[in-house]
């Protein structure tokens, strides 16, 4: 093979790894975007709740030494519960015409969840179970890391379940109806508050899975993961277009591949500079995002 070929193999490899890891960003982005779609509000506590759920699932790991997959499911359930609590505390009782109040309430919740985690673990990182982390699949000339492949597959399954719920069930009809035309949804007898609450639980579960997979891929859980994940999730949401699920998926994979290739070329310390640059380019040239519309509110 030519020298050129050897030069591009490694960057391509890092893009592949990044895209697979980016499926986690896609999940977090979907969470942000779905809540925005239904309530037209941003839940800034979302990524912190996801990490919080992953921490809660550590109990299953440390006390029961449950297998990794069970721990992941526990994380999803725990984050679903936290999601509901966030809804009740920060969204349910704050009047609709005060979006800033809900935003600040969710910031408070982000800090609260973060602090609870820090105090419960004395701020020390905790080992988190991984799956297939010793597997390497050889696809000459590339390698597929077993743990990344598992993350990707689990994310795709979670997304398919979500899309099934949204497009094939009564609950999905209610969710989309409330998102598109809240007044008309009420006239159809769809309870807006119930639908909002269920949306928080579902996106919470999705985030819990994402948080668990972050822990699994790094091998440890740290409270320091919450803020970067929040930022990445918001970037993915903006690049994908607020309210667009396909947008969040594509943008998640894009950001994942993009950051990893820059990590390969410029190192982990400079990586996020380029991600911010990507966000900047989007905000300047395509502020509505990949799949967004210029104006969705009527």
């Amino acid at each position: 093979m030519s020298d050129f070929w050897w030069d591009v193999i490694d960057p391509i490899q890092s893009v592949l790894d990044g895209v697979m890891f980016g499926s986690i960003y896609a999940l977090i982005g979907i969470g942000f975007t779905l809540i925005f779609g239904v309530m037209h509000k941003i839940n800034l506590a979302y990524a912190a709740a996801s990490i919080g759920g992953a921490y809660a699932s550590l109990a299953a790991f440390q006390l029961l030494s449950a297998p990794a997959l069970v721990v992941f499911l526990c994380a999803a359930v725990a984050s679903g519960v936290i999601g509901y609590a966030v809804y009740i505390c920060c969204f349910r009782f704050i009047p609709e015409h005060l979006p800033l109040a809900t935003l600040m309430a969710s910031v408070g919740m982000l800090i609260l969840i973060d602090e609870v985690v820090v105090h419960a673990t004395a701020g020390m990182p905790e080992p988190y179970p991984a799956m297939f982390d010793d597997v390497m699949i050889d696809l000459e000339p590339f390698w597929v890391r077993g743990d990344l492949l598992m993350i990707f597959v689990l994310s795709v399954i979670a997304m398919m379940i979500l899309l099934y719920i949204l497009y094939r069930t009564r609950l999905g009809i209610a969710t989309r109806a409330v998102a598109q035309q809240p007044a008309a949804a009420q006239l159809c007898g769809i309870g807006q508050q119930n639908t909002n609450a269920v949306t928080f639980i579902i996106t919470g579960a999705l985030g819990g899975l994402a948080g668990a997979m972050v822990g699994a891929s790094v091998g440890i859980l740290s409270p320091l993961l919450a803020l970067p994940l929040t930022v990445k999730g918001l970037i993915v949401t903006v690049i994908g277009g607020l309210g667009s699920i396909p947008g969040a998926i594509v943008a998640g994979l894009l950001v994942g591949g993009f950051e990893n290739v820059f990590q390969y070329f410029r190192g982990v310390t400079e990586r996020d500079i380029y991600v911010m640059l990507l966000l900047f380019v989007f905000l300047t040239f395509r502020p509505q995002g990949l799949f967004g519309r210029m104006s969705t509110r009527d």
Partner: peptide, 25 residues
């Protein structure tokens, strides 16, 4: 039942899905 002013159909749902939403309860 109320047929609202400006119709307020669910724009990104199909005609069939709009009717299913009507039968939600």
């Amino acid at each position: 039942a109320l047929v609202p002013e400006n119709r307020l159909v669910f724009p990104d749902m199909t005609v069939r899905e709009n009717l299913v939403a009507g039968a939600y309860t």
